[in-house]
Design a protein around this nucleic acid. Structure first.
Lengths: 341, 341
DNA sequence: CCGGCAAATGAAACCGATTACATTCCGGAG
DNA sequence: CTCCGGAATGTAATCGGTTTCATTTGCCGG
């Protein structure tokens, strides 16, 4: 006989409930699962017995019998040093947890940074230790996505893929960078800004590409190619790029930043150059990072609905578990008006 | 017979491995679990069979047989609106995931904000659906902690409890606020600051109490009672409190802030009052929030080792699962020297 | 009053592992 | 040469549920 956990009192099982209710285990199971094969009468009897015995379903036994785990794996492959102080991860996670609340499914975090951890995670997925996978910040490198598809499990990608060949096999949730960028640009147009500059993140980043497109669509000639520069995501990049820009194009009256940290660098450069914000130059960031609200002056920025992203990812996962076809949802970003634009 | 998941190919079980290896299921199980009852020879045979069949252990079957779930529940009760944009949650979570990596245990997030969710979570814990619980930001209200103790499960509290009656029953991990505060204070002393002010968070907060004590121990008369004020955690509180303080005590040459956001407010107030930082007034924050590095000037602050906290919590949980007695670990904070002090 | 059919229930197989207990197969002591 | 003991393995019970299949029960029409 298996060794029981130390001092664990013998648990109440359906057998106990069955005895108490004077029916068989099968009937108890059916009553619990709302089968239409049991009388309302019997169901009530069983429910009373459950209440009297304090029975709580053992998830493992059920999982074993049904082949379902009642869990959703949250696969995180993000390199640990990146985005370290970014609340993104936590917010999406919270959204997922919220989205699963009440479904009976629980989120299981599977962190797989190294190649070996990834292989391990995949093998456990293959073995159906989770009923679905929500993959955060999907990562094209290696053959992870292909392997994920190979498991046959429902998979929800949280975050955008450049040109996904996985339409129809994975569900996807992401925020509409193009639309978000348009919102920022429209704000500047409404404000009468004429000579706009863009200080963007790395040129090969998919988010950068989309944001740039959104800016261009709205601003047209107001955003000169020569006033569009790429730099790193952090504030030092934003600072130096802006400083250089102010040298070559001293007449700019607005800056669209590729991230809030870039925007902070831009603000510093503007202050150093003696420009007033927003009087002389407007600035709009991206992400609604914690630093945006606390910047001086407080930064107008574009917010990604991260919690909603997580919630929706969870719901899509549940849908697919229930048999629905994969689908893609694009969430709208919001302009958070503060002081800088 | 239970309905199998759609299109799920029949899984490889130990029975298949046993057939392939020409031994019994029991022997396979023993080989897998490194029992010393199997010959090295047999073990090798089994391992080859495993490799050939591509067998992966079914965690649920094992969990059912052993009574262990191979999971650690991460209980989050934090009210959702608080600390919303704080990376704390995510970092600790990541630490936990890292700390569990390689142990075979997986973290399961159990979010229980409402009373009913809390009850549900507890019932599932009681049923041994997890092997241990790591409780984030423990919360004295209600009888949650008592109920947690009642489950008999190993519990690790992550974060400090004011005056815990649970010594010896829960393990606890938290950062040493007193020591952190001393670090900040010592920095000011070394810098020759003589008239120090403290703009702290709510007076009844345990962290505030500890930090205040740490400041007082080091600074003595340098930190006048009259220059110690309490306010809310955010920057507006920091701003107004600092502004008021500058009115009544214009001669202060350093400010110890109860949080980074308070510190940011203080910086703004100092700038408004025409004081230079750090030349006229030094400022030290607390938490190493993302905004600290991005402040202007970059904020010197005290960092909590959040990831390490999570890692340690995970390790303590594993220890207790293995039968170790609960213990308390207090992690050292670090001074992050930047520009403001 | 009886046969037949459907609804409700019970009995038992099963999910995939672990482990107590039984069995086999050694070698070595007497 | 026999017997004993321990090591290695096999057999089967078990964990806590679900589900198939068989059985019982109740109701109806003929």
């Amino acid at each position: 006989m298996p060794r029981r956990r130390r001092d664990a009192p013998r648990a109440v099982t359906i057998a106990d409930v069955a005895r108490e209710a004077g029916v068989s285990r099968a009937t108890v199971s059916r009553a619990i699962n709302d089968s239409d094969l049991v009388t309302a009468e019997t169901k009530r009897t069983v429910e009373e017995a459950i209440a009297r015995t304090g029975f709580v379903m053992n998830a493992r036994g059920r999982a074993l019998a049904t082949g379902r785990a009642e869990t959703v794996g949250v696969l995180v492959t993000e390199p640990l040093d990146e985005l370290f102080d970014d609340p993104t991860y936590g917010r999406v996670l919270r959204g997922i947890a919220e989205g699963l609340t009440g479904s009976g499914f629980l989120p299981v975090i599977v962190q797989a940074s190294s190649e070996s951890e990834r292989a391990l995670a995949l093998r456990s997925f293959e073995r159906r230790s989770v009923d679905a996978v929500v993959h955060l910040t999907p990562y094209r490198g290696g053959d992870l996505l292909e392997a994920l598809a190979g498991t046959g499990l429902p998979v929800v990608l949280c975050g955008q893929l450049v040109d996904s060949p996985y339409e129809g096999v994975f569900s996807t949730v992401y925020s509409d960078d193009v639309r978000g960028a348009r919102l920022a640009a429209e704000r500047l147009v409404a404000d009468g800004r004429e000579r706009v500059a863009a200080v963007l993140g790395p040129a090969d980043n998919p988010a950068t590409v989309d944001r740039r497109r959104g800016y261009a669509e709205v601003l047209g000639a107001r955003l000169d190619e020569a006033r569009t520069v790429h730099t790193g995501w952090d504030s030092t990049g934003g600072f130096s790029a802006t400083a250089a820009l102010l040298e070559t194009h001293p007449d700019i009256d607005a800056i669209l930043a590729g991230s809030d940290r870039i925007a902070l660098g831009a603000l510093a450069a503007l202050r150093a150059a003696g420009r007033r914000v927003p009087d002389d130059v407007a600035v709009i960031g991206f992400d609604d990072h914690a630093i945006a609200a606390n910047a001086s002056p407080p930064l107008t920025t574009i917010a990604q609905p991260l919690v909603e992203e997580g919630q929706l990812a969870a719901r899509l996962a549940l849908e697919m578990i229930a048999g629905a076809a994969p689908r893609t949802e694009i969430l709208p970003m919001r302009l958070i008006p503060r002081t800088t634009a």
